[in-house]
Nucleic acid binder design. Structure first.
Lengths: 335, 335
DNA sequence: AGGCGACATGACAGCGCTGTCAACACCCCG
DNA sequence: CGGGGTGTTGACAGCGCTGTCATGTCGCCT
């Protein structure tokens, strides 16, 4: 009445449990006829191996763990969705854990999943190199996503942050903007620094000097960004365009614009967000393409699981500038 | 060098593994001094029980499974986030699985998690009563969320769909609207039918007849809703207000409005969505309060895990009308 | 014909826990 | 002072797998 075990399959098929185990794990050196008979018995009994037992017996759980800042951040939600889909195809389950942007909690969550015996881990880390390197386990395959954080011992999949930012700001410069604001907390992630560098590069190559008045690096959440954005837009020599280095910064700017009833400030946000195309004007973004990122991360995780000694990869995927309207606005007062 | 086991703790503390096991599981009849000594040993060795072994030994995994339509739907993403947070506090992990709105896949995913030995399951089901009742396991505690689907054998946590819809439509009626459109696929979920009933009720009590021209029940995704919304808004006797029975329908309407350059159509969407407050005009919604829902669901799940024979609960939480602008627009042409 | 290696299968011992049951020490009561 | 709880602890047998090692069977080469 209870779930069938490997013994039931063994009895039914007439082979030993070890042979059944071999069939399950697609081990070599089993006669194809034997495989067929065992498979038939498995099918007949509707047998499914118990992951806990497989794990205890010596293997890993058919499970991948995903550790991200927060599960309901749209970016990470998409990442999780892709990983979940890929894992399902591979017959694996997905454990999720969030760090809430807390280093201790990040460490705890990673350790917990590692202890649990997951086959692999996808982690969006943060903190300085040392913290992150220490938090990442060496006995479990890990792929780091989105942020490198100086990690060199693990596979990393991220995007061209600097180039993406450069593209965004060049886009604004091409529309004639010369006073372009920047919002983004540099101390938070290395990615933010890259994005600032991209901003700086685009300005410099256009012969525009970076105006410290237009660079706001204190805000982290959108709530924090809002007053700064408000202040920046309200000054007499306000920027005619803004580059928001993250969706959170972008939302702060949008709130400020809404508050000031201004729809004439050009805006490009690094990172797409839900319904950006329905805003007034629709928001131009630098798409980080979370789907491609997660897909690649999963590929690399599988590779690492199969060959723990494979060469360490640092994959940098291109971003995509998506013009929707807000980024194509001409400078105020110009036709 | 390897992870410490219960034997290490036993040796270190001077007790048997069984006593250590008792301490871990907070079993009764253990002297407090013994507990203290064992705890000290656990602390010293940094011991953490192996979930797989606990499971095999006879218990359940310290894990809850969450099965939803899709992981990156903002509503479910929030649900998952809350469950994850609560689970973490309870020392549990969270397995996520999505159904992709496919009955077979729903069944597969639920079975898989159940087999895995999770302690409990939170499921957003769909399909007719029979399908769902069959898909839900009886040997694992389950809490059904968001949609009842006729389930009577499990705890259910949902919201006042009909009342919420009535509130929304009354709100529009109170602003003077008499031609109010409805968008929502009734055949999809029982919740949608409830929302339509709420719509009908609010109209009826205001002495307004339901105009079939203004009721669109074919669309399911926002892509499908878009052309219908477009058509509805473009007719000569177009509605002055629209009640979108789900965020997807709402996005369809918003796209249509954007396309038609119309910001004068009053709109209330059932279900909040990201940055709704930044739209032009900001979108008035009926908040389903996913956080409260998930919180309650987790409470009920814990209750059910502790007492499998507890009375079956059907909890219906109130929704919250959030006026933000779009729902307060007067009918076209009226001051 | 004898022997060796490649293939195919099985016996058995864990993996790290928990459940069952037994053992033992006390305590209360008649 | 003996019987029968009650509280506290431990020995031991699994749970359902996989790893190791042994066993048996051919086919082929010398």
């Amino acid at each position: 009445m209870s779930r069938p075990t490997i013994y039931d399959v063994a009895r039914e098929s007439g082979f030993s449990i070890k042979t059944v185990s071999r069939v399950i794990n697609e081990a070599p050196n089993v006669r194809s006829e034997t495989v067929a008979r065992v498979r038939a018995a498995i099918e007949l009994l509707q047998y499914h191996p118990d992951p806990a037992a497989q794990r205890l017996g010596g293997g890993k759980l058919p499970t991948v763990g995903v550790v991200v800042d927060s599960v309901d951040d749209p970016f990470f939600a998409q990442v999780i969705a892709v990983i979940e889909a890929r894992a399902m195809d591979a017959g694996m389950d997905v454990l999720v854990a969030s760090t809430g942007m807390d280093e201790t909690r990040m460490r705890t969550q990673i350790r917990r999943l590692a202890r649990r015996g997951v086959a692999g881990l996808v982690v969006a880390p943060f903190g300085d190199t040392r913290t992150v390197e220490e938090a990442l386990p060496d006995d479990v395959p890990v792929v780091v996503i989105d942020r490198k954080c100086g990690v060199t011992s693990k596979d990393v999949v991220r995007v061209t942050d600097e180039q993406g930012a450069t593209d965004a700001v060049r886009h604004l410069v091409a529309r004639g903007h010369r006073r372009i604001g920047f919002l983004g907390k540099l101390s938070a992630f290395d990615t933010l620094v890259d994005r600032f560098n991209g901003y700086e590069r685009a300005l410099t190559e256009a012969g525009i000097e970076v105006d410290p008045q237009l660079v706001e690096t204190r805000a982290w959440t959108s709530d924090e960004a809002y007053p700064y954005a408000l202040a920046m837009l309200a000054t007499s020599d306000a920027p005619t365009a803004v580059f928001a280095a993250s969706p959170m910064m972008g939302l702060g700017v949008l709130r400020a614009q809404q508050r000031l009833h201004r729809q004439d400030v050009a805006l490009v946000i690094f990172g797409d967000y839900p319904v950006a195309e329905l805003m007034t004007p629709p928001t131009t973004v630098v798409d980080q393409r979370p789907v491609a990122l997660a897909d690649t991360a999963f590929d690399h995780l599988v590779r690492r699981i199969q060959d723990p000694d494979a060469e360490v990869l640092d994959t940098v995927l291109p971003t995509l500038l998506v013009p929707r309207g807000s980024g194509e606005l001409a400078p105020r007062g110009v036709a």
